[in-house]
């Protein structure tokens, strides 16, 4: 499944990994701890306010800063189904794919969305729809190799599968 429908949470440019999950919470990698402190310094009580399946729509360079995988994990554990951004910071981009958090690079398409709008995203097809305005947008799709990781669910499954295949 690569299609997600949800309500938009709109955030700005350069949302760094300290804002997504501050280092003071990194002494505990449990899903519960990550979930409750996710984006806390950007939107207080974020994890309580969102509904399962909601979608983050962000500006440029989302996830810049540290390599902490805790950042995409925190977003995933919150119940966010997908992150759409103008662009992603490099390590966050890898991490999201590797842990199975669906993401899509959308460039200026993000300008069409505001807090609370309803959005549909098809990650495999690179397709985005504004459900309130009825507008549709096409973005780039992932290269085949990355699609294989996405199809496996995450990099751990993919590696396991590959190691078995190689005997």
């Amino acid at each position: 499944m690569s299609k997600y429908i949800g309500r938009v949470w709109r955030v700005g440019n350069d949302i760094d990994t300290d804002l997504i999950i501050a280092a003071r919470h990194l002494n505990d990698a449990s899903p519960e701890n990550l979930r409750k402190n996710c984006l806390q310094d950007v939107i207080p009580d974020f994890s309580k306010k969102i509904a399962k399946g909601d979608i983050i729509v962000a500006g440029k360079n989302f996830g810049c800063g540290s390599s902490r995988e805790h950042a995409p994990l925190a977003i995933k554990h919150c119940g966010i189904s997908c992150v759409v951004a103008h662009s992603f910071a490099r390590i966050f981009y890898r991490n999201a794919i590797n842990i199975g958090l669906p993401i899509i690079t959308a460039g200026n398409v993000i300008e069409a969305f505001q807090d609370g709008d309803r959005i549909e995203v098809d990650v495999n097809q690179g397709f985005i729809r504004h459900l309130d305005k009825g507008q549709e947008y096409q973005t780039e799709t992932f290269p085949p190799f990355i699609q294989e990781i996405i199809a496996a669910g995450n990099l751990a499954n993919y590696v396991q599968w590959r190691m078995k295949a190689n005997g």
Binding site: S67, R68, E69, R94, N95, L155, M163
Partner: peptide, 14 residues
């Protein structure tokens, strides 16, 4: 280059 924990795990394995 910097990577995430799952990348590190994959590299430790392979």
């Amino acid at each position: 280059t910097g990577v995430g924990s799952t990348d590190l795990a994959a590299a430790m394995a392979t």
